[in-house]
Each structure stands twice: as C-alpha cells, then as structure tokens.
C-alpha cells in the first residue's frame, strides 16, 4: 500500500458497494416513508420484508465475498449433524482487499442493525404489535448476517495464525537439520 497517496485510493468494487447499500436503504426508507403515507399494513409488510430478505441474500452471497473475501453457510453432513462452514481467501488475497470496501461493508452492517433496533423501540413504545413483527423479521436477518460474518472473520484470523505457526516450525526444523548436516 502506498501511504504517500491516500486520496488516490478508490473503491475496488463500486457496483457491489452500491448494491450492498441499496437494498438496506430501500428497506429502511420504504418502512419509514410508508408508515407516513400508506395506510395498508399488508403492503408495508410485504415490501419491507422482501427488501430485507433480498438484502440478506445479496450480503451473504455476493457482497460479503466480493468486498471482504468471506462467506458462510450451513450444511448437514453424512452423520446428520449441522455444520457451519466459514470460507475465506488466503492471507495474500485478504491483504490485497480494498480497505474502503471493507470499511463500508462492516459499518453499513452495524448501522443497519442499530437503525432497525431503534425502529423496534419506537414500535414498542407505541404498542404496535404488527409493526413490531416487521421490524423483528428485518432485525433477525441483520443480526444473522453480523453473527455469520463475525464468526467467518474469526476463522480467517485463526487460520492465518495456524499458517504462520506452521511456517515458523518448518523453518526452524529445516534450519536445525541443515546446521547438523553441515557439522
């Protein structure tokens, strides 16, 4: 990374960043604005929840792996057990990730969850159980993505540390063996 030109760095994937933010903003905007203008609860529910589900899918399957090189999913193995899989690029590819992409990814993830939490508090204060249902679904999807990617990042760091430890051990052993062979 060239520290002499910090202004020159730009987003590596502007299209993915755009769609990463678009569905979040659309869900929040539709929920907030339609509560002011539209009186039909069914339309509010369906549109908001569909946008939140679409955002969940885009973040989990597309922007997560393009912006920060992480992906997570769940599958069931032959023994019938639930296995969570966390996938990440190797350390060289992770080092080449754009920092602005990563910054945008994590901050928008957390800010969206905070926004839905505040909307949930408002619905709770006004004792609107039906709108609490909408916010509950959207908040569940946001938190699922946050938990998934946080676990994914922990696994990536753990794997890099194991790689570094293995490299050190192999170098020490090869050095000792070459020293003994010289003697």
């Amino acid at each position: 990374m060239d520290l002499g030109h910090p202004v020159g760095e730009n987003y590596a994937n502007p299209n993915t960043c755009f769609f990463h933010v678009l569905f979040k903003a659309a869900a929040l905007a539709f929920y907030i604005l339609s509560a002011l203008f539209i009186d039909n609860f069914v339309i509010i529910f369906v549109m908001t929840v569909l946008l939140a589900a679409l955002d969940f899918w885009v973040v989990k399957n597309l922007s997560g792996r393009i912006l920060v090189g992480l992906r997570w999913w769940n599958e069931i193995n032959d023994l019938g057990e639930s296995v969570w899989k966390f996938e990440s690029l190797d350390q060289q590819s992770l080092a080449r990730m754009n920092k602005k992409d990563s910054w945008l990814f994590w901050w928008t993830l957390y800010l969206t969850a905070v926004a839905w939490t505040m909307l949930a508090i408002f619905s709770l204060i006004r004792l609107q159980a039906d709108y609490l249902l909408v916010v509950g679904v959207c908040l569940t999807l946001c938190i699922a993505n946050i938990v998934g990617f946080t676990e994914c990042q922990k696994n990536a760091k753990k794997r890099i540390q194991q790689f570094v430890s293995r490299t050190i051990a192999s170098r020490v052993s090869s050095t000792l063996q070459s020293a003994f062979s010289v003697v």
């Binding site: 296995v83 966390f86 060289q92 794997r159 490299t167 050190i168 090869s174």
Partner: peptide
C-alpha cells in the same frame, strides 16, 4: 512481519513455502 523476524538466521535460508490454493475452508461443528 513477526514471523519473518522470529526466524533463525542461517547461512543458507530455505525458500518460504507458498500456499498454492487461494481458497481455504474451515469446518466448525457449532
């Protein structure tokens, strides 16, 4: 950087092993 500094200096340093597969998957039974 830490791994580079911690290596023991030798007369003939071996070439560092490089990962040939860029993608890695870890399985954790939750």
């Amino acid at each position: 950087n830490a791994s580079v500094h911690q290596s023991v200096p030798s007369a003939r340093p071996p070439s560092p092993p490089r990962a040939s597969i860029p993608v890695s998957v870890s399985v954790s039974t939750a």
